[in-house]
């Protein structure tokens, strides 16, 4: 475990908690894409099935359980408890355009043609694009609440830190996972435009709004 990996995990955790707290404290999920959150719940579910087959460490198991539990809690808050505040009219990204190609690709390009491995690969590919419904929603409404931008920042930072972690592991451990690295690069690139807006606007105290 290197510092980039650890801060990446903590950044991921921070993002998840920020989103949960935002919804809970404001009693509203306005501006949040339920579709992205459903995709993240699917990502964690398909990736962490190895909880049943192998034990790595207490840290590993607890983080996986926390991620899964939080993502289901978020979906519950959006689609059940605070459903009245869910902005479904603006959450119109067609998720089948992501899930179907990603499903096909995970059958074609994987480390090993076994059910658990294909599901793991599916989760890696799906995670890289799961934020698109959220970014699409922001581009449609032209704005995002500041707390939502903090969520997105930590979520993007997490994969960027994982990229540095992989460079580190390549040099010091000879580890290299092409599938994770390519998907991680794609995932990080998707946040670049947002990172730019975050630094130039949100960090200077302005609200994130896009030109009409």
């Amino acid at each position: 475990m290197n510092i980039f990996r650890l801060t990446g995990d903590l950044s991921h955790l921070a993002a998840i908690i920020i989103l949960l707290l935002k919804i809970w404290k404001t009693r509203s999920c306005a501006g949040i894409s339920g579709k992205s959150q459903l995709l993240f719940a699917l990502v964690f579910t398909t990736r962490y099935l190895d909880l049943f087959t192998s034990f790595i460490s207490l840290y590993n198991t607890s983080m996986k359980l926390i991620y899964v539990a939080c993502s289901y809690a978020t979906v519950y808050l959006i689609y059940m408890k605070f459903k009245a505040t869910y902005d479904g009219n603006h959450d119109t990204f067609r998720v089948e355009f992501l899930v179907v190609p990603v499903g096909g690709l995970s059958f074609l390009v994987n480390h090993d043609f076994s059910p658990l491995e294909i599901l793991w690969t599916f989760s890696i590919y799906l995670e890289s694009v799961a934020i698109l419904p959220q970014l699409f929603m922001i581009s449609k409404t032209g704005e995002a609440e500041t707390i939502t931008t903090h969520y997105l920042f930590f979520l993007g930072l997490y994969r960027a830190l994982y990229l540095i972690n992989w460079i580190w592991r390549y040099y010091f451990e000879g580890f290299f996972d092409l599938i994770a690295v390519v998907a991680g690069v794609v995932q990080t690139i998707l946040y670049c435009d947002f990172f730019y807006l975050y630094v130039t606007k949100v960090l200077k105290g302005k609200k994130l709004s896009l030109p009409a």
Partner: peptide, 10 residues
């Protein structure tokens, strides 16, 4: 080198 995935990562 092209090794399999890191099992310990999240």
């Amino acid at each position: 080198c092209h090794r399999k995935k890191a099992k310990d990562e999240l």
